Lab assay of single mutants.
Amino acid sequence: MEQATVKWFNAEKGFGFIERENGDDVFVHFSAIQGDGFKSLDEGQAVTFDVEEGQRGPQAANVQKA
């Protein structure tokens, strides 16, 4: 698992990007966020996640709020 920071997340559209420590951004979809209830992330929030290869490149999976 990697630890990184949420760059931005649009709760209405259900997706955003996580900024990795190496500077690369990773796409995150609300369905990858672990937990119950409304799944959203806040800008600047610390998260841990795995990286999977998606249809359009790397994307976050198993996202957990740190």
Rank of each mutant, 00 (worst) to 15 (best):
M1I: 11
E2V: 11
E2D: 07
E2G: 11
E2H: 14
Q3N: 11
A4Q: 04
A4M: 03
A4D: 02
A4K: 00
T5G: 02
T5F: 14
T5R: 13
T5I: 13
K7S: 05
W8E: 05
W8T: 02
F9S: 03
F9L: 01
N10R: 04
N10Y: 05
N10E: 04
N10L: 04
A11N: 11
A11S: 12
A11V: 12
E12C: 15
E12R: 12
E12W: 11
E12L: 14
K13D: 03
G14N: 01
G14P: 00
F15S: 01
F15L: 05
G16M: 02
G16L: 03
F17T: 01
I18A: 00
I18E: 00
I18D: 03
R20H: 06
R20W: 07
E21A: 13
E21D: 11
E21P: 13
N22K: 11
N22E: 10
N22Y: 11
G23F: 06
G23M: 10
G23R: 08
D24R: 13
D24F: 10
D24I: 12
D24T: 14
D25R: 11
V26M: 07
V26I: 13
V26Y: 04
V26A: 02
F27I: 03
F30V: 07
S31P: 01
A32V: 07
I33A: 01
I33L: 07
Q34A: 11
Q34M: 13
G35H: 09
D36K: 12
D36Q: 12
D36Y: 11
D36N: 12
D36T: 13
F38Q: 06
F38C: 11
F38A: 08
K39Q: 09
S40E: 07
L41G: 02
L41V: 04
L41A: 01
L41K: 01
L41N: 02
L41I: 06
D42Y: 15
D42M: 15
E43N: 14
E43P: 15
G44F: 05
G44H: 06
Q45N: 07
Q45E: 13
A46M: 14
A46L: 15
A46Y: 13
V47N: 03
F49R: 00
F49M: 09
F49Q: 00
D50W: 15
D50H: 15
E52F: 13
E52I: 15
E52C: 14
E52A: 10
E53N: 12
G54R: 08
G54P: 03
G54D: 05
G54Y: 05
G54C: 08
G54S: 10
G54I: 03
Q55N: 12
Q55R: 15
Q55W: 13
R56Q: 10
G57W: 05
P58F: 10
P58E: 06
P58T: 09
A60C: 05
A61S: 10
A61K: 12
A61Y: 09
A61T: 12
V63Y: 00
V63W: 00
V63C: 06
V63G: 00
V63R: 00
Q64H: 13
Q64S: 10
Q64N: 12
K65Y: 11
K65N: 10
K65T: 12
